[in-house]
Design a protein around this nucleic acid. Structure first.
Length: 137
DNA sequence: GCCAACGTTGGC
DNA sequence: GCCAACGTTGGC
């Protein structure tokens, strides 16, 4: 199994909306590196849900429900999306400040490449966020 | 609201 | 293929 993190501005599409709607097609990604990561997702992979902008923090855990397929919102170009399902919210959201201060997370792409919207995580990074979020599956 | 970092575009 | 200009993202 692989692990990922996706970013979303809460004003645009929040974790609460995602939970209420019981999942979403993760459309609108228009960046080649992010697309490559989307296409690497396998059904069942765990995906951390991160709120960017106001209140930057990891808020929840999702799972890949459907692997990459053509993004129906793309009017031109070769873009992909996946379907994600909510698993559970973190008992304690993990803020960017905490992530930045954590030695075990200093290599996380969230910090190293702050503009990437879909990124891979190592098992150690995922476990550390679970630990900081006081959450288990 | 500002600004740094990064990606994309287009002229050459 | 290089690089300047521009647009966007996202942290603060």
């Amino acid at each position: 199994m692989n692990f990922w993190l996706v970013k979303q501005e809460p004003e645009d599409y929040s974790w609460n909306t995602f939970v209420k709607e019981r999942g979403a097609a993760w459309t609108g990604v228009r960046n080649f590196q992010a697309r490559k990561n989307l296409r690497g997702m396998k059904k069942g992979d765990l995906v951390l849900f991160y709120h960017s902008g106001s209140g930057a923090e990891v808020v929840g855990i999702a799972r890949v429900a459907r692997e990459a397929y053509p993004d129906p919102t793309a009017t031109e170009g070769d873009w992909s999306c996946v379907n994600l399902l909510p698993v559970k919210g973190l008992n304690r959201p993990v803020t960017l400040g905490v992530i930045k201060a954590d030695q075990a997370l200093k290599e996380i792409p969230l910090i190293r490449n702050s503009r990437l919207s879909v990124m891979p995580l190592t098992p150690a990074q995922l476990n550390r966020v679970f630990e900081l979020g006081e959450t288990n599956l």
